[in-house]
Design a protein around this nucleic acid. Structure first.
Ligand code: MN
Ligand code: MN
Ligand code: MN
Ligand code: MN
Lengths: 222, 222
DNA sequence: TACAATTTTTAGATTAATCTAAATAATATT
DNA sequence: AATATTATTTAGATTAATCTAAAAATTGTA
């Protein structure tokens, strides 16, 4: 009755993630099939199953939203995923571009007690290795007034606090430039031609970063 | 082709465990169905599947043995299971009677790299919280010349190194008596009547332990 | 050896999760 | 408004993992 399979959990997380971007509007079938790398027919099938379990509100052709129960399950998963990522980076010294797939499996470990002990063990972190907020045990997220680096004006300073693009390629590129979380960046020149910008890193190293990079990097203005 | 499901992994581990007790004789269907808490029919079905994947040698009505590949998979699972148990006890401070079910899930996390990093992180342990040996990355077990406490003669001393019975009830009972791994016990009296014995614990506390307890506790003679 | 008991396998169903192909509904475009 | 396009659902199959009930093989015993 109450048992939720790994697959069902992954669907709930996918719906949660899409709903976040879409600011709560009903999530449609195709968006889910893309996110889950599966067919629309499979999604429809699963939506009926999740609906019967009262994890989503679903009306044919109208898309879905999470119920309270479905939302709680999804945020629990996000909490577990991000805490395991912290563990892998902080304790086992994996780099931030290696941990996602492992966390994708670890997030399904049942025990609530385990998660909460892990949380304490890790020093009650508020953010994961990519700067994403870790919801607390009640499901509340810490919000931060962050903006893409691209939004900084000439002369403005910011601290790198997160990424939009979580791909290994982007994360490795940032490593190469030493643009890690906590780094201080200052915009010292902006090029209208291709919307790239020149920045200094911790008041020292200079870099030119492309529009794509500056749009995918979140900073907290200073 | 090469993908092994959680369920298949659990069957391999069950076969490995039974084969250990039976000293390599072919493992029969009913033994597996008991260990897996499932029906004989389901086991037969799974044996055909494992056989097709070349994880076991199987002949109808003759029982099964693990192939090299099946054996390697099983010992890797045992390694993972026991390392996670060490993690849960040493780092998250669970007690030894709480960790089995969590490890039963954690053992299925794929990444080999994760296991080896965990191994280093834990200080390359050779034994799990119940005193069971942790096979190394190549699948070799450390053997110990251990015997049930019941085998100690009057006046003999031993160090508690493991348990036969892994049930929470037994482990909690041992906790109550402070009979934990590493404790030194000396047999100071043996009662023929019910085969119980009186022991001293670390040369101090005295206890009378039943036959059942002394048979389920492993010691290393001194 | 013959019969009984036990063990194992087979047959036939069920449920979860997936797929392809076809049908239907919703939306966009002339 | 009619038609074309896109999105979604339905129909029908497949595979893994399980079950119950019945059949068959093996083992134990008189
Ligand atoms: Mn992740
Ligand atoms: Mn997952
Ligand atoms: Mn265990
Ligand atoms: Mn398991």
């Amino acid at each position: 009755m109450d048992n939720i399979s790994h697959t069902e959990e992954n669907y709930l997380k996918a719906i949660f993630k899409i709903a976040e971007k879409e600011e709560g509007r009903p999530v449609n079938t195709n968006a889910i099939s893309t996110e889950m790398k599966t067919t629309a027919a499979s999604v429809t099938d699963m939506l009926n199953r999740l609906s019967k379990k009262e994890l989503i509100h679903y009306e044919k052709y109208k898309g879905v939203t999470l119920t309270i129960k479905g939302g709680r399950t999804a945020t629990r998963l996000v909490r577990k995923h991000r805490l395991w990522e912290v563990f892998l980076v902080e304790k086992l010294h994996f780099s931030w571009d290696e941990v996602h797939d492992m966390a994708e499996e670890l997030e399904h470990i049942q025990s609530e007690e385990l998660v909460e002990r892990l949380y304490d063990y890790l020093g009650r972190p508020k953010f994961d290795p990519h700067g994403d907020p870790i919801p607390d045990a009640e499901g509340n997220f810490t919000f931060r007034k962050q903006a893409p680096l691209a939004d900084l004006h000439l002369g403005e300073k910011g601290i790198v606090v997160g990424v939009q693009d979580h791909s290994a390629a982007f994360l490795q590129y940032l490593d190469r430039l030493q643009l890690s979380l906590g780094a201080q960046v200052t915009v010292i020149e902006r090029f209208d031609y291709d919307e790239s910008m020149k920045i200094t890193l911790n008041g020292d190293k200079e870099h030119i970063v492309s529009k794509k990079v500056s749009q995918n990097l979140f900073v907290e203005k200073q």
